[in-house]
Design a protein around this nucleic acid. Structure first.
Length: 913
RNA sequence: GGGCGCGUAGCUCAGUGGGAGAGCGCUCGCUUCACACGCGAGAGGUCGCAGGUUCGAAACCCGCCGCGCCCACCA
């Protein structure tokens, strides 16, 4: 018949060994996953892949979640979608910066000029003999520093790509991007300038979250709580002019070192106990500074004494009170976390006893926060202003997630993007988005509802996207921050520490009547929040001549009639883990909302975490570190993917090597079942004539339907489980039942089996293709042309169609069906398959209990069952007889199934040996 | 303090109104002509606790307990 039947090429001994290398080479050669930009928009399925951080190594958690995305990508591709599946590398940010500093022995200094011939002092961090004497890192310009970062991250990126290819991610490797590359810098800077023009970005000198070790501003989204021991101190403030009534104020604080920065005491407006103090002035202990006693509804009268000290700034609540009550500023904390010198007696630092204030403060000045706190407690004890003993407390303290000491609040000039005023719109965007699983939306809403201020995007760091901004310097040498000079769009990307603004010469940098570049870089999320635009190459209308930096990609996007961006944006899917909903997911929605007034994608698939089998952190203490590459080598990519794909969307999953073995078994089973089904396959018939063949195809159609609807809901795990469950049943029962008939002399009987086997095998190979891409490609190649990953996803409708043609030769006893209702006949056929399988199991049980081999002959079985089921069994009796080696089958009507089995006489003992 | 999720066999987990399931592990058996990287069979559970709705609850409702996570103005 067709060419397919003669061209099967089944190996003698199928094996999983080497499939990864074999097929990834073929996929690369054939461009199997290359995105076809000529596809119409409706056919495109675009994925906003999470760019992994390249300054570490990939771990099992990455393998886990990226496999989920790949399964969806492969499914959509088989559904006929043109899948846009790029890969990004997140090399922008602090982790890389730190590594480069250590690796090359350099530090970045934006005031240093770019040196095109720069060579790093050290390749391995140790430095040469002569340089080792001085451990001072070499100061290099920002562009030079960025070059070193790029050089160092490149080898990581190659290793990452190799791992992803081994894992079988169907990424289009011609569309990779980096978050520090020229493309990302250009897009990031352009978006920033647009926000600035539309007043959605602004610069402000304001209290800012600050990490005293990194000495940079950080954002609310980068904070985390850590439990830390502390102590509650009850402190006495005197009241100005209280000689008459002896009034005093008692406050409780965990931060006595900030008393000099106190600007007010607050009570709740309804708190009767404090009524007498309202409108009067309290006087700080030791320093003698007068501060007003005011009210604010946020004060909790139940806490402490009901009276609270406001400092500039002890925590975020202080900022709220300070802002809402219009209080003054007394800043005493430096950028390095030490107490500053402050001008006692001058404006803002008034004191009733300047000399005493100066002396007391002198004990604290220059100390770190902890040192100052200890000394302050001693001073308060000495002066008698500490009431009672400090009480130990454990409280949650805010830390920068990468930091080692609590964040402080320091006043500084920073860039912000407006978020708070868009709160309602952002909540609406969250409802517009399809979340998988849906309950993950709650985390987004919690976050948006909890926003306390606009997004601070400037960082006092070096390895990031610079602000495309300079500032003029006036004749007096003052930097005019309120008159920024903006880069032209066609200049982008710019580095203001090296590039020169229009109208100036390089020599004017830093001079009077000259200019200076903005020294800061953007928060890494300020660029990562644009991954849809970066991956989609959302550049301006005309090509920027200066942009040659993004690898081998030529900017077809700019010249083509239809830019890539129009084809892929808004994207279809954002896959990511739940821990970065408040950062990556939130900021991407924000930027898309502000720049495009729409969602960046239609669906968000949120994955869980990988946990150790004992529910603890993945540990290296068990001797051998489990790296992803080791897993892939030991179990095979398909097996590792199988484990990953069993983790349901959003659910944390235990790391379980046992599951990988199970996955490997499934892959091996696919090899062997395919080999069996294809070996000596008889010509197939035009229709399925045998009832059991029809029944199995009917069940298959139901499974295909189930898997398809699961995938449509992004529930890849369910799709896999349904296909897998049925596949094992198919192998254990159906294949055994038809084993004899496929070699039957009656051509029609064999032709029907042959057709059913083709339909089933083809369906199984495609159903598993998103999960086990290597073995499925292998078995597909034995008898089909082209890649299984470009083959159409199985169609339940087609399979149902196979059951519509009724066999016309009377082979099937239609009984009372009247032939008019195919559904009744199908139910009976399905029952036949069910009963045949049930009886086969009973027969196996009897043989197993008699400790006889499965091929041991059965003299007779008596099947007790309902009349309906016994009638249906007739349709499959011949197959059952062969599969069970049964000589005679009798039946008896009963309420439920039971089977009597008479084994044939045991053959005479063979001679030993 | 608020919210989300979870609690089912030794382990990992499916199951959401009507027979308590799968895989692994364990026990026993079988060299069966696709597969010993295999095949067959078996043992094993008061479905966290308590109440309610219902003819019927592992599932739906209320409360409680435990675990995990998110958020919070944590003085």
């Amino acid at each position: 018949m067709s060419a397919i039947e003669t061209s099967t090429n089944v190996p003698e001994r199928p094996t999983l060994a080497g499939l990864e290398a074999k097929w990834s080479a073929v996929w690369e050669r054939d461009g199997a996953y290359r995105f076809d930009r000529s596809a119409p928009r409706e056919r495109v399925f675009a994925i906003d892949t999470p760019p992994p951080t390249v300054s570490g190594s990939l771990h099992v958690g990455h393998v886990f979640s990226y496999t989920h995305t790949d399964a969806i990508a492969r499914y959509q591709r088989m559904r006929g979608k043109e899948v846009f599946y790029p890969m990004g590398w997140d090399d922008n940010g602090l982790p890389t910066e730190r590594r480069v500093q250590n690796h090359y022995g350099v530090r970045c200094d934006p005031s240093v000029a770019y040196d095109p011939d720069f060579a790093p002092p050290s390749e391995d961090g140790a430095g040469s003999e002569s340089e080792r004497g001085s451990d001072r890192p070499v100061a290099v310009s920002r562009p030079n520093f960025v070059e070193l970062c790029l050089a160092l991250t490149e080898t990581d990126e190659q290793a990452f790509e190799a791992l992803w290819r081994t894992l079988g991610l169907s990424v289009d490797w011609s569309t990779t991007y980096t978050t520090i590359g020229a493309l990302a810098r250009e897009i990031s800077q352009r978006s920033f300038l647009g926000l600035l023009a539309r007043k959605q970005a602004y610069q402000l000198e304001a209290p800012t979250l600050w990490d005293i070790d990194f000495q940079t501003a950080v954002a609310q989204a980068e904070l985390e709580d850590r439990e830390r021991p502390g102590a509650m101190h009850r402190v006495r403030f005197s009241i100005a002019g209280a000689q008459r009534d002896g009034a005093e104020a008692l406050i409780e604080t965990t931060r006595p070192e900030l008393i000099a920065a106190c600007v007010a005491l607050l009570a709740h407006p309804d708190d009767e106990r404090q009524r007498g103090l309202l409108g009067r002035e309290a006087v700080t202990p030791l320093f003698g500074t007068r501060v007003p006693v005011l009210t604010h509804p946020l004060v909790d009268p139940e806490k402490g004494t009901g009276l609270v000290m406001v400092c500039t700034f002890g925590d975020l609540t202080d900022v709220v009170w300070w802002r809402e009550l219009g209080l003054g500023v007394r800043s005493l904390l430096g950028a390095d976390g030490r107490l500053l010198d402050v001008p006692w007696g001058q404006a803002g630092w008034e004191s009733e006893d300047v000399a005493r204030a100066r002396a007391q403060y002198g004990e604290l000045q220059g100390k770190t926060i902890n040192q100052a706190r200890r000394r302050m407690v001693e001073l308060l004890e000495e002066s008698g202003d500490l009431v009672g003993e400090p009480t130990p407390v454990t409280r949650a303290v805010k830390f920068f997630e990468k930091g080692e000491r609590p964040v402080e609040i320091v006043t500084s000039r920073q860039w912000f993007i407006r978020t708070v005023e868009h709160r309602d719109a952002l909540l609406a965007r969250g409802r517009e988005l399809d979340w998988h699983p849906p309950y993950m939306r709650a985390r987004y809403e919690d976050w948006v509802n909890g926003l306390t201020g606009d997004w601070c995007i400037s960082r006092q760091r070096f390895f990031g996207v610079p602000f495309p901004v300079w500032y003029p310097i006036d004749a007096a040498g003052t930097v005019l921050y309120d008159r920024p000079i903006l880069a032209r769009e066609d200049q982008l990307p710019v580095d203001p520490s090296t590039d020169v603004p229009d109208g100036y010469t390089p020599e004017q940098r830093g001079d009077q009547n000259g200019f200076i570049g903005d020294p800061d870089v953007m928060d890494t999320w300020a660029t990562s929040s644009l991954t849809p635009q970066i991956a989609g190459r959302h550049l301006a209308g005309s090509a920027g001549p200066g942009d040659g930096g993004e690898g081998a990609t030529s900017d077809e996007a700019l010249s083509g009639p239809e830019p890539l961006f129009a084809k892929v944006f808004p994207m279809d899917l954002r896959p990511q883990a739940h821990d970065i909903i408040r950062t990556w997911l939130f900021t991407t929605i924000l930027r898309s909302h502000l720049d495009h007034d729409e969602l960046p994608w239609r669906n968000a698939a949120i994955s869980g975490w990988v946990l150790d089998p004992d529910r603890k952190k993945m540990s290296k203490s068990k001797g051998n570190v489990v790296t992803p590459m080791h897993l892939l080598e030991e179990y095979g990519a398909d097996a590792v993917r199988y484990w990953a794909a069993n983790g349901r969307p959003g659910t944390d999953t235990a790391f379980d090597a046992q599951q990988m073995k199970v996955g490997r078994r499934l892959a091996v089973k696919l090899l062997n079942a395919s080999k069996f089904a294809l070996a000596d396959l008889a010509p197939q018939g035009e229709t399925l004539t045998h009832p059991l063949d029809r029944a199995v195809v009917g069940r298959l159609a139901a499974v295909v339907e189930d898997a398809t609807s699961s995938f449509e809901e992004y529930d890849y795990a369910r799709a896999l489980q349904r296909a897998e469950e049925f596949f094992w049943w198919f192998c254990d029962y159906y294949l055994e039942l038809v084993k004899g008939r496929r070699y039957d002399d009656a051509p029609q009987a064999a032709a029907s089996v042959s057709r059913a086997l083709r339909l089933s095998l083809s369906s199984f190979q495609r159903l598993f293709a998103p999960f086990l891409p290597f073995v499925c490609e292998e078995v597909w190649s034995w008898w089909q042309d082209g890649s299984v990953h470009r083959a159409p996803w199985p169609d339940a409708g087609e399979l149902w169609g196979e059951l519509e043609d009724r066999p016309g030769d009377g082979e099937i006893d239609r009984g009372g069906d009247g032939g008019s209702d195919g559904r009744v006949a199908r139910v009976r056929e399905d029952t036949a398959l069910a009963v045949a399988a049930d009886v086969l199991r009973e027969v196996r049980k009897a043989k197993s209990q008699a400790q006889r081999p499965m091929r041991a002959p059965i003299a007779r079985v008596v099947v007790h069952d309902t009349a309906e089921r016994l009638s249906a069994l007739q349709l499959g009796e011949d197959d059952l007889r062969q599969a069970g080696a049964i000589e005679r089958i009798d039946t008896a009507v009963a309420e439920e199934l039971s089977v009597e089995v008479e084994l044939a006489e045991e053959p005479p003992d063979r001679p030993a040996g």
